[in-house]
Design a protein around this nucleic acid. Structure first.
Length: 869
RNA sequence: GCAGGGAUGCCGGAGUGGUCAAACGGGCUGGGCUUAGGACCCAGUGGCUUAGUGCCUACGCAGGUUCGAACCCUGUUCCCUGCACCA
């Protein structure tokens, strides 16, 4: 019995010693394969991780064998809050904690047999890496894309830091799903992702190898909408309140205008008036609502109040009252909404506060009575009571209304995005310091490039506050401009900055002069295959695209999009829940490797289900995977046979199918085809060539086993660097498959008859009657010369006598005219092959026509009758 | 509510117009091997069955297109994922 563990460590050592997976620039076509770099947690890797990395490894190994110059690196996203928290909890330093975790990760990943180029690895907490974060920050600052502003931001009380919009999930913190995010007014650093909103959106159309759903998610996240800012003039002043809308067709329906409670104008408007008290109370009430309460459609009541002011509708010069309302959001559009009878929220609000409503759209243009209406009319229809637009279809009127309002100077056509600028500052220690200095005299001064990196101090005190704030050595510096005492920025950067460009760094990870060498990344980038979780759709995958577009603007890269192909793997479940440390249902890599070998785990994980689907871990399946590997390896002990045409056909067909399936990421089906081949070889015998092909086909999945087989077959290492087998379409002969099917059927028939007669015969004679089929066959062939229309041929050939066998034969022949369909076989072949059937008896076949044996025993058309002697 | 994906046998999961009662694997049943078990090998695994190259019923549900549908079209139910008072 083969010892999988032993051969695994043997080959891992050899791979490492010979550095066979190191990649250098060459004239070969490149292929950059990458998995999203992991956050190195202290708890190590489990089967869920193994699954993710093996998907990438199979891809990398396959491409490598197919003649590509493959870049397949690994690194670590080592900054971040969890490490800081874990370190504090374990009374150790985040750096020590993290580096220990990384070491452990590397060991585990090596034990998985992943074909990484380890010479290119790095971790984002290393100053050699984060120096370039800071450099990027300065570049963004230089171009006005990094800026500081006071804003209402999301604050997680558990993390003790602010969060980006992308890190807020259902109003809760992405790391603490029980913790409500608070809104705080803080002075924070932002990256101006919104400047790239259009580019980010348009770029999606070019990403033809991205999953549709991810593109849709990003489109929705960017949320581009075309509309108009309508200028409502505050009554009695020249002040303009712009209200953004995508539905200017409802302009004549407007009966009030709503401001967001946080809108800076609100307090100004009510100051010193009798409405001030109520307004303040209402704002307080709204702010006490959680985000969920405020932003769920079915949710809570509409809350708001009248501000005592009126604005003028530029379309008809009507005065309408001004309100604040909880459903109006300050950071979307202009924070001002025109309200009418054609929006459910507005409608409910109006009913509650007894604001009059008027409809201007109905299905057929007939007037709707606002008094009796019970809900908003939100569907499309015909306009009425809309001056010159009455009678138009509302959708068609939209551009016309916009034109008309623009001409009247009552508004301005605008595009709006849901995308927010990226909030990047964090009030935590374990991150990359923001390279900014505050000087009393010079103000905000960027750290000069030559002073980079701004190193994160190691000796710090962990307490209630950000440890950087209490570290005087770090905080107190000289102003780079005036040399007077100044203070450093103590916020650190969001770790998503590290991950938004790290993939460039693999191409040139040791460069200490530049962020990377342009020539090198021009060769390697973009990433041909990126593999990672769907959950990064709106975070990492947008940030990376943003930074790449920025790098292009700096002329540091030619590429526009970093990830050519994206693959989202499914999650590994156990007992119906996602396998994860927090759920406590993990299966450790060591446990499985020790018992079955890591190749078994690799095989199992790729076999159970398509890589993009969720899968379930089950113990029986692992055992059967183990058995399969044993079965494959034990083929080596079998006596080898000479190549037959049939074996060649099967071998070539398997190469063809497996290659196609791997290319399409159908790894499970590829393995099924491989196992089919293995079963075939087990039964019918194998040749040296067929075993070599088998070893190559299986090598991306179970590389250790394949190397061992390769060596045992008398070849020099390494199979990992061998050429992927090519198939010869000429050698694939479907006839053999048909014969196989025929044999199966014959065997069944024989067994049935033996059961029936209930004897153990010494000799069986089989009669084959095929005459009728040959006639039909000839007829169809003739028809085929006239037309390829299946239906027509069937009609012409159809004969009551032959029933439903005919369509089958016709279809088969239409599909492949050279393949002998079904049971229409060369009778000579039958005789040859049937001799090989092992049913424990000797059998003899006599073509039916020639048979002068007992007529009663003659077979019915196409099948077999047996005469027992 | 909007968007995307899905529903197949005891289970996981193939199959996108015909050789489909449905690959492959697991489970289960029977047989062989074995002192026994395991491993391995063989057979069976929708129902009926006069045992037949037979009939019926089936790929969420209901219709439609077609000589022919698990596969195409329409409607419908349920499930998952993402966004969500976005004006």
């Amino acid at each position: 019995m083969v010892n999988l563990q032993k051969i695994e460590s043997k080959w891992q050592k050899k791979w490492e010693d010979k550095k066979i997976f190191q990649s250098k620039k060459s004239s070969k076509k490149k292929f950059y394969c990458l998995e999203m770099y992991p956050y190195p947690s202290g708890s190590g890797l489990h089967m869920g991780h193994v699954c993710n990395y093996v998907i990438g490894d199979v891809c990398a190994r396959f491409k490598r064998m197919n003649g590509f110059n493959v870049l397949y690196p690994m690194g670590y996203d080592s900054f971040g809050l969890p490490a800081e928290n874990a370190a504090i909890k374990n009374k150790t330093h985040p750096k020590i904690y993290t580096e220990k975790s990384i070491k452990n990760f590397i060991r585990q990943q090596k034990e998985m047999g992943l074909s990484y180029d380890w010479s290119r690895t790095f971790s984002s907490h290393q100053p050699e890496f984060y120096k370039w974060d800071q450099w990027l920050f300065l570049k963004l600052y230089e171009k006005g894309l990094a800026y500081k502003k006071k804003a209402a931001v999301n604050w997680c009380p558990k993390c003790n830091t602010v969060l980006a919009n992308e890190q807020v999930v259902n109003g809760k913190c992405w790391r603490h799903t029980e913790t409500e995010v608070e809104i705080k007014e803080l002075n924070q650093w932002f990256f101006k992702t919104t400047d790239y909103a259009d580019k980010l959106l348009d770029g999606l159309d070019k990403l033809e190898y991205w999953p549709e759903d991810i593109k849709t998610i990003q489109r929705n996240w960017i949320g581009k909408s075309q509309g108009i800012e309508i200028h409502f003039k505050l009554k009695g002043t020249n002040k303009i309140l712009p209200a953004y809308t995508t539905r200017p067709d409802t302009i004549f329906s407007v009966t009030f205008v709503v401001l967001a409670p946080e809108h800076p104008l609100v307090l100004e408007l009510v100051k010193g008036t009798k409405y001030e008290k109520e307004t303040l109370e209402t704002i307080k009430k709204i702010k006490s609502q959680s985000i969920i309460e405020r932003t769920t459609p079915e949710g809570k009541d509409k809350i708001g109040c009248f501000l005592g002011k009126y604005v003028i509708n530029p379309a008809n010069n009507e005065e309408v009252p001004l309100y604040i309302a909880n459903f109006c959001l300050v950071d979307y559009g202009t924070g001002i909404v025109m309200a009418d009878a054609h929006d459910q929220r507005d409608f409910e609000f109006a009913k509650k506060y007894k604001i009059p409503l008027k409809f201007v759209i109905s299905k057929n243009g007939s007037v709707i009575d606002a008094e009796t209406a019970s809900e908003a009319y939100t569907a499309d229809g015909i306009l009425f009571n809309s001056e010159k637009f009455s009678g138009m279809k509302n959708q068609e009127s939209i551009p016309k209304v916009i034109d008309w309002l623009e001409k009247k100077k009552g508004g301005k056509k605008t595009t709006n995005y849901r995308l927010r600028d990226w909030l990047i500052s964090r009030q935590r220690y374990w991150g990359c310091p923001i390279p900014i200095i505050y000087c009393n005299k010079c103000g905000l001064v960027p750290v000069p490039e030559k002073d980079l990196p701004v190193k994160l101090p190691e000796k710090v005190k962990f307490g209630d506050k950000n440890p950087l704030e209490t570290n005087n050595d770090f905080v107190n510096v000289k102003c780079p401009k005036c040399k007077k005492p100044a203070k450093r920025e103590t916020d650190t950067m969001d770790t998503f900055i590290d991950s938004s460009w790290y993939f460039f760094r693999y191409c040139d990870n040791k460069n200490n002069k530049k962020i990377f060498d342009k020539e090198k990344i021009d060769y390697w980038m973009p990433i041909d295959q990126y593999i990672g979780g769907r959950e990064h759709a709106t975070g990492h995958l947008i940030y990376s695209r943003f930074i790449t577009k920025f790098l292009k603007q700096l002329k540091l890269t030619k590429i526009d999009e970093p990830f050519l192909r994206l693959f989202n793997q499914g999650m590994l479940h156990k007992d119906g829940v996602v396998m994860s440390k927090s759920k406590g249902n993990t299966v450790s890599q060591e446990e499985i490797a020790k018992k079955y070998g890591i190749d078994t785990a690799r095989f199992f994980l790729m076999f159970i289900s398509s890589p993009d689907k969720d899968k379930d871990w089950n113990t029986e399946g692992v055992q059967s995977a183990y058995k399969s590997l044993i079965k494959i390896y034990s083929l080596l002990d079998k006596k080898q046979i000479k190549e037959t045409k049939e074996l060649q056909s099967k071998t070539n067909k398997t190469i063809k199918e497996v290659t196609k399936e791997i290319e399409n990421f159908n790894y499970n089906i590829a393995l099924i085809k491989i196992m089919d081949f293995v079963n075939y070889l087990t039964k019918k015998g194998c040749s040296k060539n067929s075993l070599e092909v088998l070893a190559k086909l299986i090598s991306p999945f179970t590389p250790h086993l394949a190397e061992e087989m390769w060596e045992k077959l008398g070849n020099k290492p390494f199979i990992s660097l061998e050429k992927w087998p090519k198939y010869d379409p000429k050698k694939i002969d479907e006839k053999f498959e048909a014969i196989d099917a025929f044999l199966e059927q014959t065997k069944k028939d024989i067994n049935n008859i033996i059961k029936l007669v209930n004897i153990k015969p010494k000799k069986i004679t089989i009669f084959v009657s095929e005459t009728w089929k040959y006639n039909v066959f000839k007829k169809i062939k003739k028809e085929l010369e006239k037309t390829r229309n299946t239906g027509e041929i069937i009609k012409n050939v159809m004969d009551k006598k032959y029933g439903k066998e005919i369509p089958k034969i016709v279809t088969s022949l239409v599909k492949n005219p050279n393949k002998i369909p079904d049971l229409i076989l060369d009778q000579k072949t039958e005789i040859q092959v049937l001799k090989e059937i092992d049913i424990g008896f000797k059998i003899q076949i006599i073509p039916a026509e020639k048979s002068k044996e007992n007529k009663a025993k003659q077979a019915s058309p196409g099948k077999v009758a047996i005469l027992v002697k």
